[in-house]
């Protein structure tokens, strides 16, 4: 039993993977609470895809992958925020145009390389087992920074997520809060990209929070449950992927998806009980 639990972590890369999974799982599912309540899931997907262009350009120029993806992700987030506040174009249309364009640019640049040996799949689906020591340190530092910022912005984020108009009238700087959330979202996505990949990061931003939303009607509890579910799925998913010899990112997300359907069934029972209680 002990061997089953700790066996995998005799391997150093598995230890790093575990820490990365916990950091990514907790962070994505915490900020995911706002993503779900503000209906930003498409934006998360958009930022993740757009940053692929940054990854490719950074790779071709021999720059650090985080720098390339980070710059593009933050710029995309700010651009989306700007378009939202101006409100001339339907936001989902704007994101749809922008992120598919940026993603295609990434693929285009990549495919023109005569002998590209970079593992495209690892960007799409991530490889948490390949997280290096430096990667892990960077992930933990960035995760800490984002977590502190989220804690400091807890009240303004909650108020402006629920009622932005009245929050602004009462003197909160709603534009600052909105932009801050988008930048934090971009940073979270960058942190998560290497471990869970572009396609699956959107799922980690939405599914744990959506699962928690089925189970509670209190904001604070929703965030707490979301973090527990996200972290739990990350840890258990890592184990399962090790023993099943399956992709870690996909396993983590499949677990979260399963949790969502269980919660949906439970949530319906809870609501029915409430109605009759």
């Amino acid at each position: 039993m002990t061997d089953l639990l700790f066996g995998p972590f005799a391997l150093e890369f598995m230890q790093r993977a575990l820490f990365a999974a916990i950091a990514v799982g907790a962070l994505c599912s915490a900020i995911g609470t706002y993503v779900v309540l503000r209906k930003l899931s498409f934006i998360g997907d958009g930022i993740a895809h757009a940053s692929f262009a940054g990854v490719v350009v950074a790779y071709l120029r021999g720059l650090d992958y985080y720098v390339g993806a980070g710059i593009v992700a933050v710029l995309t987030a700010l651009g989306i925020g700007f378009v939202t506040r101006r409100g001339r174009v339907a936001l989902d249309t704007a994101i749809g145009v922008m992120f598919t364009g940026a993603f295609a640019l990434g693929v285009f640049l990549m495919s023109r390389q005569a002998h590209y040996n970079v593992d495209l799949e690892s960007f799409l689906f991530g490889n948490i087992l390949a997280v290096s020591r430096q990667d892990l340190i960077l992930i933990l530092i960035l995760a800490f920074v984002v977590a502190v910022a989220l804690a400091l912005l807890y009240r303004p984020l909650l108020y402006t997520s629920f009622d932005p108009v009245v929050a602004q009238a009462s003197g909160l700087n709603v534009a600052f809060v909105d932009y801050s959330l988008l930048v934090l979202l971009a940073l979270t996505i960058i942190i998560s990209l290497e471990s869970v990949g572009i396609v699956l990061v959107a799922a980690l931003l939405v599914t744990p929070a959506a699962t928690a939303y089925q189970l509670t009607r209190r904001f604070r509890l929703m965030m707490l449950l979301s973090v527990c579910i996200g972290t739990g799925c990350a840890i258990v998913g890592l184990y399962l992927s090790y023993y099943l010899n399956a992709g870690s990112g996909a396993t983590i997300v499949l677990l979260a998806t399963a949790a969502f359907f269980v919660a949906m069934a439970l949530g319906r029972r809870t609501r029915t009980a409430l109605r009759h209680g």
Partner: peptide, 25 residues
């Protein structure tokens, strides 16, 4: 009030938000 009525908040939670602007971070 153009709020999302399914937002996870009770009456007390909403009223408590009135304190947020003064409280700061």
């Amino acid at each position: 009030e153009a709020v999302d009525w399914s937002f996870p908040a009770t009456v007390e939670d909403v009223v408590a938000m009135g304190r947020f602007p003064r409280l700061g971070a």
